[in-house]
């Protein structure tokens, strides 16, 4: 019989290594997509996905079940992992004095589609980069990943009211110049 999420969390806390594999099987796709939307890079999203589950294991005695799911906790950890990854990239760019390497398209159809998705995602990230980071995080969790306000609040460790106000400000900022397709009112 499949473990409930609360039982899965208990297995984590008990140091059951199988809990990590189980959590990965259940939630890796969602975490990967979330990381892709933050980093704009498939390679980074893959790295961040693996790192997220390792971080969850390292901090397993702090795992939180919200509304019968460990997913908000995973999203919170993933958000931090992705932000740290991006900070590392920025440091590298500053240190080397170079711009990030451009993605070079491969003629193969599959690769082309991947490059298209990355290019498209990076355009989106440029668009939302004028938002403060905390508003970007709320946007990514609520609008792009579909978490409700309470789950996003649990993921970010802030009150629900703060999630509401950050999202409201994000919408206002993004619609200041023109209407935002991806930011429903």
């Amino acid at each position: 019989m499949e473990l409930t999420e609360a039982e899965l969390a208990a297995a984590f806390r008990a140091g059951d290594r199988g809990a990590v594999a189980e959590a990965f099987d259940r939630h890796a796709d969602r975490i990967y997509r979330h990381c892709f939307r933050i980093t704009g890079s498939r390679a980074d999203a893959e790295d961040a996905t693996a790192s997220t589950f390792l971080e969850v294991w390292r901090h397993r005695d702090r795992i939180v079940v919200h509304d019968d799911s460990v997913l908000p906790w995973l999203y919170g950890v993933a958000t931090n992992v992705c932000r740290n990854l991006l900070r590392g990239h920025r440091r590298q760019v500053r240190l080397s004095g170079r711009m990030p390497v451009e993605v070079v398209a491969d003629p193969a159809e599959e690769v082309e589609a991947r490059v298209d998705a990355e290019a498209r995602m990076r355009e989106v990230l440029v668009e939302v980069s004028r938002l403060p980071r905390r508003e970007q995080d709320v946007l990514a969790l609520v609008v792009w990943s579909g978490l409700d306000y309470a789950a996003a609040a649990a993921a970010l460790g802030v009150p629900v009211g703060t999630v509401r106000s950050r999202l409201s400000r994000a919408r206002a900022r993004l619609s200041r110049d023109q209407p935002a397709e991806g930011v429903p009112s």
């Binding site: 892709f36 355009e123 209407p179 397709e181 991806g182």
Partner: peptide
């Protein structure tokens, strides 16, 4: 406006 992420 480009703030709709692509399908992944």
């Amino acid at each position: 406006m480009t703030s709709t992420p692509p399908l992944i």
